[in-house]
Design a protein around this nucleic acid. Structure first.
Lengths: 151, 151
DNA sequence: GTAATTGCTGAACCTCACTTTAGGTCAAGG
DNA sequence: CCTTGACCTAAAGTGAGGTTCAGCAATTAC
């Protein structure tokens, strides 16, 4: 009722397009820290909209939630990325993205030079032992995950 | 001891670089069908080397194991891809790969035009609602999965 | 011939990113 | 006052792609 009660989880879901369950999950992962009202319900600040925006964008760039959390945790005082922060972070995103595109382009070039061959030889085929493996550490989806920028 | 006893799972693991557990898993998924020797141990043909090669390459291209199985199952008599098969399949790989590169390139272009902005506005930022979402169906890792070629 | 390797099975566990379910609580409208 | 809808929690499920474990059996090396 007061002017600055904050947003409910449903309101936040409506505005971001995320599912309520996803927002709760992000909280469990430490990406947002809502406070609770008297009845124990989550209340969100306007800054959380930006924070979730950031999460959604970073996911598009192929970052995992732990990676995104790490990026957010580096901001002083746990603040939401402002314009200056974004300029820095997005530069890192660009680097990761460029690398990813580069990796795929090299893979395509190797494929081009292999289409007529078809040897699939473990010893000599250019498609093996690619200098750039698409994601090499950790389990789960192992292809195409971007590296953490400036890490 | 006989000349054509086939390879043990350990030998196959050594030659392919795969873990023994991964090879057993691939068998469980129907990607390879070894026979058993008198003692119940798996014995593999030389063709299984090529089959696993194919699996590893297709994974690099972002295909899931079910997709790869589907591709292998389309080959007559459950044979391992030969040169002619490969020419056809790799053309499909190339298409999927080109699409993926294209998607990422567009994403990079949008990022370029946004780096100085930093608005992250849910309403107006070009980084939202991209025409090409990077993988949109199914759960699990939702970014950057290649589409099935010719499906 | 025996010890060390390697192999076997089935089940449980892992990450990632969530959703679903079951069983309740809170807030607002009529 | 009572119902409806939004919210709460903890736990389990999903699916991809495996690994790890316990408790045995088979092979191989010496």
């Amino acid at each position: 009722m007061a002017v600055n009660d904050g947003l409910s989880i449903g309101a936040l879901a409506d505005r971001t397009g995320l599912a309520v369950s996803a927002i709760r999950y992000y909280e469990a992962q430490g990406l947002i820290r809502p406070w609770r009202n008297a009845g124990g319900q989550r209340r969100f600040e306007r800054a959380d909209l930006r924070r979730l925006s950031f999460v959604m964008i970073a996911q598009q760039f192929g970052f995992t939630l732990p990676q995104i959390k790490a990026e957010l945790d580096r901001l002083p005082g746990g603040r939401t990325p402002n314009k200056a922060d974004w300029a820095q972070i997005s530069a890192g995103f660009k680097t990761a993205l460029d690398q990813r595109i580069d990796t795929l382009t090299r893979l395509r070039d190797r494929l081009d030079s292999c289409i007529g061959c078809g040897c699939l030889s473990l010893d000599s085929c250019a498609l093996y032992n690619p200098a750039d493996k698409a994601g090499d550490r950790g389990q789960g989806p192992r292809f195409l995950m971007g590296d953490t920028p400036e890490d």
